[in-house]
Every structure is written in structure tokens, then in C-alpha cells.
């Protein structure tokens, strides 16, 4: 702007070539600069997110390496973990029969147990949660029992369920079920009790039946709470399955760790721990993502 006005002020004749020259530069520069700037900005943004964890992980591995490198070290350093467990890491799909299977099969088996036990817990938990959320009588009757039972550690249920089911597999499923059901019940009932009176008034004015209120008002209004419960529940059940599998044996990432300990494969244990952590993280994200979509963005991610 200042250049153009100056040119006009000096002489009208001289002004003719000057705008021509600036116009050329003006049209070319803007698309060029932002593209470069945008790429640079994006790179900086990505680096800002990716670099800190990479640096911290790198430093931790370095410290670990230094601490465990001396000859008498009880735990293997990272380099030794990778070289020892190389077969286990590179081929997750091997199957030598019995319980000698790759990481993929071990984790799949554990996930299958969690899937079944957790699904039962979700259905029963939501139903019970809605019941004690809607009925004061049911809440007064059941809530004290729930408050006591939910503090029982998952594994304390295992002997009882073994006695009841007489088989290890249903017992493991029951432990998952009983571990993950409490947060689902409690969060659902809180959600039902917190439905705004306004929604109930709307339902009353348009005269929804009991059943329609349940489907069209109660459930959708409670979805964010239900998914909070489900997220806590799935985390707990993943905690419980590893412990339960250690005791019941067979295929599964929990017993794999126990088996590795018995045969002194410490490196396998460390790799399995990393897998368990990653799978647990992904389970949590999965439930959160489903909740986000089901509640149309209302439930927290």
C-alpha cells in the first residue's frame, strides 16, 4: 500500500510500470509462502507431539541399559530383551500346539475372555443401574450390598467361582464379569438419577408411555454416564483377566507370563508386559471412541 500511494504521488506516468511489477509478485508470493509455512508449521506441530515421548522413552531405555549392563544384573537390559525374545517379537502367529503359541494367539484368547465377560457385565450392569436409578426402593435395597461387594478384589472371587462352576474357563469369565460390573451399575444409576426434570416434563406433556420414556429419554440421556462406567469396567476387566489367567492356566497372556517366569524367560515377560499395556490402552480408547459416536459427541473422549 505505501509503495503504491507513493508511486501515484510522485508521478502518474511512473505509476504505470510499478503496479505491473508488484502485481506479478503479489500473485505469486501468497500461494508459495503459506504452503511452505504450513508444511513447516505442521512439521513443528507433529514434532511437538511426537518428540517428547520419544525422548523420554529413549532416555529411560538408556538408563535401563546402563543399570542392567553389569555382569551380575538380575534383570536383562533392553538389548538383551530384544535378542532373547526376538522369536516371540517377530513371529506373533506361531502355533506349536498346546500352550506354546505366539503373542497374537495369547492376547486374542485373553481378549476373547474379556469380550464375553465384559459383554455380560455391560448388559446386566446397565439393566441393574437403570433399575436402582429409577426405583428408590431398589436403590435402598441393593446399593448397600453393591457398595460392599464392589470392594472385593477380583481374585478373591476366583476360588468361589471355581467351586461353583467346576471349570476354569467359566470361572475366569465370572471373575471378569464380577469385576467390571460395579462401575457400570453405579455410573448408570447416577446417570438415570441425574436426568433433568425438563426432559421428564417434555415426556409427560407428549404423554410417552413408560416404555417410550425408557427408550427415547432415559437411555439416551444416560449414555454418557454408561460409557464412563464401561470405560472404567473394561480397564478393570483387563486387569483382572491377567491375574485370573495366571491361576487357571491354559492359553492366555496372563498364564504366558506365569509360564515364562517358571522357565526363567524374563525377556518374554517384559515383552508381554508391554503388549498388555498397549492392548489395555487400546481397549480404553475403543470404548471411549464408541461412546463418543453413540452419544453424538457428548461423552468425553
Amino acid at each position: 500500500m505505501p509503495a503504491a500511494s507513493k508511486a501515484v504521488a510522485v508521478s502518474p506516468a511512473a505509476a504505470v510500470p510499478v503496479p505491473g511489477a508488484t502485481a506479478e509478485i503479489v500473485t505469486f508470493r501468497p500461494p508459495l509462502r503459506p504452503v511452505l509455512e504450513r508444511v513447516g508449521e505442521m512439521a513443528r506441530h507433529v514434532a511437538g507431539i511426537v518428540l517428547p515421548p520419544l525422548i523420554v522413552i529413549g532416555l529411560s531405555l538408556l538408563v535401563w541399559q546402563l543399570l542392567c549392563s553389569e555382569p551380575g544384573a538380575r534383570l536383562p537390559p533392553p538389548t538383551k530383551v530384544v535378542s532373547d525374545a526376538w522369536d516371540f517379537i517377530v513371529d506373533p502367529f506361531y502355533d506349536n500346539g498346546g500352550i506354546d503359541k505366539g503373542a497374537f494367539w495369547q492376547i486374542t484368547k485373553s481378549l476373547g475372555r474379556v469380550g464375553i465377560g465384559f459383554s455380560f457385565a455391560a448388559v446386566v450392569g446397565v439393566a441393574l443401574g437403570v433399575l436402582i436409578g429409577q426405583s428408590t426402593w431398589a436403590m435402598r435395597g441393593l446399593d448397600p450390598i453393591f457398595q460392599v461387594l464392589r470392594t472385593v478384589p477380583p481374585l478373591a472371587w476366583l476360588p468361589l467361582s471355581l467351586a461353583g462352576f467346576r471349570h476354569s474357563d467359566p470361572s475366569a469369565l465370572f471373575v471378569i464379569f464380577i469385576t467390571s460390573i460395579w462401575p457400570i451399575i453405579i455410573n448408570t444409576s447416577v446417570g438415570v438419577r441425574n436426568i433433568p426434570q425438563d426432559y421428564r416434563n417434555v415426556a409427560a406433556v407428549i404423554r410417552l408411555s413408560w416404555w417410550e420414556v425408557f427408550w427415547k429419554i432415559t437411555l439416551p440421556a444416560t449414555v454418557p454416564y454408561i460409557f464412563t462406567g464401561l470405560r472404567i469396567g473394561v480397564g478393570l476387566s483387563w486387569l483382572a483377566i491377567v491375574a485370573a489367567e495366571m491361576l487357571i492356566g491354559g492359553v492366555g497372556i496372563g498364564f504366558f507370563i506365569w509360564d515364562a517366569w517358571n522357565s526363567s524367560r524374563i525377556s518374554d515377560i517384559i515383552v508381554a508386559l508391554a503388549y498388555i499395556g498397549i492392548v489395555g490402552f487400546l481397549l480404553d480408547k475403543l470404548i471411549a471412541t464408541i461412546g463418543h459416536f453413540v452419544s453424538h459427541g457428548v461423552a468425553a473422549q
Binding site: D198, N201, V202, V205, I217, P220, A221, H296
Partner: peptide, 12 residues
């Protein structure tokens, strides 16, 4: 029919 002060629309 009632028009409520805080609109009372169902958010979902």
C-alpha cells in the same frame, strides 16, 4: 403444550 424457559430440547 408448554414452551419451557430453557427450551428443554433433547440434546441427542
Amino acid at each position: 403444550a408448554i414452551v419451557f424457559q430453557n427450551h428443554s430440547l433433547l440434546p441427542w
